[in-house]
Design a binder for these strands. Structure first.
Length: 843
DNA sequence: GAGCACTGC
């Protein structure tokens, strides 16, 4: 079959012969991934050595190898093979080797000159995966030193290859047209886009309209996550006839059976509501209509706070186009974008490369291990900001992987041998000392796998799981290890796994990874002799040695609130095994945003620890009293907040829309201190600003800059660490109201599930549930307005206000005295209220 | 609705 890519074969081979570096720009569907290696083979270029074709995903490496082998009438693993983690289908005959990027990066550690390799092809480079970026930079470095004969071919689907071409210069660029069908794109109007309509309702409406106009083919709807998918499916159920349509969810946490249902053929038209999995990883045949919410949950790592954030963000043009392309694979299609054209113009052109938003510690350790001595001179395609690299080195040196000159230590060398994050590498080194290498091989594999225990399961499943697992020494990790052992004892039987809510496929994967880690440990000559299984206490000590900066203590008994070394606050995951522990270590910290704009910091994979273990493991941190560590770290947080942005006005303005909530508190503190001005404005900043103003008005004796130690910690309390979620703001608004109406001194209003504590006039305290607190407010409003039923209180999206809905769900105008309560607490609300709610008579 | 995208060694 003749493919578009064949038209450039002669040009490509000539350029390949004459130059060392080459860019091939060709869209998806042009056949470049399968044909380019074959062209090189036919032209005899592989006689001198193999070509490595890099893929960002395992499934692509496997499928491409299979496809190319069959096109060349070769057995898989002969001339054509593939290699992914724990799967190697290659032989000494192999000349075309499809591998995932991480495999090559790892190979560079043990074989820095890549002997026997004549060329590296980078496929899908536009996706800008961290491994891809690093491998390319490392490959260039190799080509410039020991291997001038090595050829580098970079293939990308995007048109914009100028920056890449500069980076690779001298380098030729060859372009090829693809064979794609046109897709008709439409946007929704400004008014609809700015309305408060929920995204799932907009989507359901669009789907219902589109399927009547376009009467064939399937529909693919993109949503940011499982929650939104559920809502969309519910909304669609009211609009589509189930005789004609089958509505199906698709996201990675579904079982494989449910995933297959979305991909399999079907007697009806399918409406598939999916996350980003359908953007690159999975392809659904015969999709004619794409409905795109324009949102995605994007993970970022915030090195200054050491946590991952997962918030809903607007997708870039590149991503929107990729989603759109899913409608034009078999014939012309259409794409409905649920945002306005004006919004579209303001969106980013491309996604931010992974290297800019991920934890760099592991990458830097790998680079050091492949022989990069001077990281300052390392030629990144796009260099991450210096502070991120610094933060990575802080972690590496805390783990003992680098010395003060930033050079690899022998411990660091050992950590780098493991295909793991250096935190887990450090855990393995500790396992060597404590004699629990097999247990930690499993612990690392389990911790890395995530998702071993399914999150959304029935209560009956939870009960069975709990009776199987026991108390697990207050450790989520040990719980997961036990769950895995149970699954293995039952041969990873699907039925058994389902009964206790284990992802069977993940459990098998964990076995392979655990074996791999164990074999690396063996190779490294670790202590493998055990007379008895390791004590769970020792296992947790090893975990702690990889996470010395993630020690948490509970703030009180009634709630799940927690403070971490470094001062960060958050909540212990409510299902955690460490829920009865006062002190624990958290392997995973996520800051999660919801569709409504709330943000919560959740600590996962926690294990109870004892104070003495800290002294045993980190004697140096405890030389002058037990609390020093906390205080030192707190000081560092304050310095960051008030020093880091001091001279960076310009950068602040430009970055204001990006990752806004990370910077917002810090910005607000600076604005109040007169250290920064903001040109752009939006409601998130306003919220934080309001809070800082509130804090400083409550404590006028403190200046925001030049703090003494006391006020520093006060500011941490008020501005930086507490009240991260909007729920806290709401709480602050509720408290004065209750006080004024009932004469009750409110001590605190705590998280939703726990009771709210109030102090009564007679000096006793009482508890009411948070929901009851809302009910009290609601009843009071009913009384004030003389309503025939209590109104509903809703939390506003970015504003610390309550929207008041009448029983018929229409919004209500506030009376002056009620409004005054809000505005006294938060002056900015006044502006927001004015004119926002139409007067509505509904008594 | 208090809670979670996707990869990869």
């Amino acid at each position: 079959m003749r493919l578009p890519i064949h038209e450039i074969e002669i040009d490509f081979l000539a350029a390949y012969r004459d130059g060392a570096r080459l860019i091939l720009q060709a869209p998806t569907g042009s056949g470049k991934s399968t044909q380019i290696p074959q062209m090189l083979s036919r032209a005899g270029f592989l006689d001198g050595g193999e070509v490595i074709a890099l893929q960002p995903r395992r499934i692509a490496a496997r499928m491409l190898a299979r496809r190319v082998a069959s096109e060349m009438n070769e057995p898989l693993g002969g001339l054509v093979g593939y290699q992914i983690r724990n799967e190697n289908h290659t032989s000494s005959r192999t000349r075309i080797r499809f591998v995932t990027e991480g495999i090559l990066l790892r190979r560079l550690i043990n074989d820095p000159e890549l002997r026997g390799v004549s060329a590296i092809i980078f496929d899908e480079f536009h996706e800008r995966s961290l491994h891809g970026d690093l491998t390319l930079a490392r490959g260039l470095m190799l080509q410039k030193t020991a291997r001038p004969d090595l050829k580098i071919v970079v293939m990308s689907a995007t048109l914009d290859t100028d920056a890449l071409s500069d980076y690779l210069s001298p380098c030729e660029t060859i372009r090829s047209e693809g064979r794609v069908y046109p897709v008709d794109v439409s946007y929704i109007g400004d008014r609809l886009a700015n309305s408060n309509a929920a995204i799932w309702d907009l989507a359901a409406r669009s789907v219902a309209d589109a399927v009547t106009e376009e009467t064939e083919g399937h529909v693919l709807v993109f949503m940011p996550g499982a929650y939104e998918i559920g809502r969309t499916i519910r909304a669609l159920g009211e609009r589509l006839s189930s005789a004609k349509f089958r509505v199906l969810p698709l996201h990675s946490e579904l079982g494989s059976k449910d995933q297959d249902a979305a991909l399999d053929a079907c007697d009806r038209r399918k409406v598939i509501v999916s996350t980003n999995v359908a953007e690159t990883s999975l392809t659904i045949d015969d999709v004619r209509i794409v409905v795109d919410s324009g949102q995605a949950r994007i993970a970022r790592y915030d090195p200054s706070r050491g946590l991952n954030t997962l918030w809903i963000e607007k997708i870039s043009h590149a991503s929107a186009n990729q989603r759109m392309g899913r409608a034009g694979r078999t014939c012309p299609g259409r794409c409905l974008r649920l945002w306005s054209e004006r919004d579209h113009q303001q969106r980013a052109e491309c996604d931010e490369p992974e290297a800019m938003r991920m934890d760099l510690a592991e990458s830097i350790l790998t680079l050091l291990a492949t022989g990069v001595e001077d990281l300052d001179a390392f030629d990144w395609f796009e260099k991450p900001v210096e502070s991120r690299i610094d933060e990575a080195f802080v972690l590496l040196s805390m783990l003992g992987a680098v010395d003060e000159r930033r050079a690899l230590t022998s411990a660091g060398r050992k950590m780098s041998e493991f295909p793991l994050h250096p935190r887990f590498g450090a855990m393995m080194l500790a396992a060597d000392r404590y004699g629990c290498v097999p247990e930690l091989s499993l612990a690392a594999a389990v911790a890395e796998s995530r998702g071993l225990l399914l999150r959304k399961v029935d209560k009956s499943v939870l009960r069975r799981r709990e009776s199987l697992l026991g108390d697990c020494a207050g450790s989520d990790l040990i719980a997961q290890m036990r769950a895995w052992s149970g699954a293995r004892a039952n041969g990873f039987d699907i039925g058994y796994c389902r009964e206790i809510g284990i992802h069977a496929q993940t459990a098998r994967q964990v076995s392979r990874v655990s074996d791999q880690i164990f074999s690396y440990a063996k190779y490294e000559d670790f202590n493998l002799i055990q007379e008895a299984p390791a004590r769970e206490e020792d296992v947790v000590k090893c975990v702690l040695s990889g996470f010395p900066d993630r020690v948490c203590r509970r703030l009180d008994r009634g709630t799940l609130r927690v403070e971490m070394t470094g001062g960060l606050r958050g909540s212990l995951a409510r299902e955690s095994m460490a829920r009865d522990s006062a002190l624990f270590v958290a392997c995973e910290i996520n800051e999660i945003g919801t569709q409504r704009g709330d943000v919560s910091t959740v600590l996962n994979l926690c294990s109870e620890i004892q104070r003495e273990w800290l002294e045993e493991l980190f004697p140096n941190d405890f030389d002058s009293g037990s609390e020093t560590k906390f205080d030192e770290k707190q000081k560092r947080v304050v310095e960051r907040v008030f020093v880091r942005y001091r001279d960076l006005d310009i950068e602040l303005k430009e970055n204001l829309d990006v990752n806004i909530e990370v910077a917002a508190t810090e910005l607000a503190a600076l604005v109040v201190a007169g250290k920064a001005k903001l040109d752009k404005w939006n409601s998130e900043v306003e919220v934080y600003l309001e809070r800082v103003r509130f804090a400083s008005s409550q404590f006028p004796e403190y200046e925001i800059e030049d703090f003494d130690e006391d006020s520093k910690s006060l500011v941490i309390e008020q501005c930086c660490l507490g009240a991260k979620s909007l729920r806290d703001l709401k709480r602050q608004a509720v408290m004065p109201l209750i006080k004024s109406w009932f004469g009750i001194e409110v001590e605190n209003v705590v998280e939703a599930e726990a009771p709210m504590k109030v102090r009564l006039e007679n000096g006793r305290t009482a508890r009411i549930r948070y929901e009851s607190g809302q009910a009290i407010l609601s009843a009071k409003i009913q009384e004030l307005y003389d309503l025939n039923a209590p109104p509903t209180l809703c939390q506003g999206r970015y504003q610390p206000r309550f929207e008041i809905l009448a029983p018929n769900q229409r919004p209500v105008q506030l009376t002056d005295d009620l409004e005054a309560f809000w505005t006294n607490a938060y002056p900015s609300i006044k502006k927001d209220l004015a004119g926002r709610y139409p007067k509505h008579e509904w008594r």
